[in-house]
């Protein structure tokens, strides 16, 4: 923990110094920073040291059909500092095949289930995750339903059950 909370500009500058080229942008007062995938864990660990102690969310966006997208998957880490109430959005982009990111469970326990959910619904693998199982879908499910190439109504998995009539029960 630093003695003085850093200003957002200082944090971005520090991040750029440590992780090479980072893209930053601001939209509606929200600061976003794109971190290259190989350095994502270091960047997030450094950000945690700078006082971003609360991991609000880990999620993902599948940019398959998004106009002008350069990468397929964009991970989103929403960080908050409980001391200064400063928010920061960290983006990490990964691509097919076998999209993999380093897990941040060692930094924030909150990431455990959030990363499992992303693995479940998007198929992003988190290396170093202690227990990377499906979270919401059945374990035997094979697809990753929030990917854009998966249809809303599914592929018929929801109809695949035995039928119990009055005679059976």
């Amino acid at each position: 923990m630093p003695s003085m909370p850093l200003a957002v500009d200082d944090i971005l500058a520090g991040l750029a110094a440590r992780c090479g080229a980072v893209e930053t942008s601001v939209f509606r007062g929200q600061t976003r920073v794109v971190v290259p995938e190989p350095r994502s864990f270091e960047a997030l660990a450094w950000l945690k040291e700078q006082g971003f102690d609360l991991l609000i969310d880990v999620t993902c966006v599948d940019y398959l059909e998004y106009p002008g997208a350069k990468h397929r998957y964009g991970l989103v880490y929403l960080l908050v500092s409980t001391a200064t109430n400063c928010r920061l959005t960290v983006r990490v982009f990964v691509d097919d095949p076998d999209p993999t990111v380093k897990s941040v469970v060692p930094l924030w326990a909150a990431a455990n289930w959030l990363e499992r959910e992303v693995w479940d619904l998007f198929g992003i693998r988190f290396s170093g995750h202690p227990d990377l199982r499906r979270l919401v879908m059945p374990q035997e499910f094979t697809a990753h339903p929030l990917r854009k190439d998966y249809p809303l109504q599914g592929r018929g998995e929801r109809h695949n059950f035995p039928i119990i009539t009055r005679d059976h029960s």
């Binding site: 609000i56 969310d57 106009p67 989103v76 959030l114």
Partner: peptide, 23 residues
């Protein structure tokens, strides 16, 4: 919280809900 990605259409491209209960 909701993390919304807009792609110009009336539908969200991605509507992520950040639920407190999970954590």
């Amino acid at each position: 919280g909701f993390y919304i990605v807009g792609d110009g259409s009336e539908n969200a491209y991605r509507a992520r809900c950040r639920p407190p209960s999970v954590l």
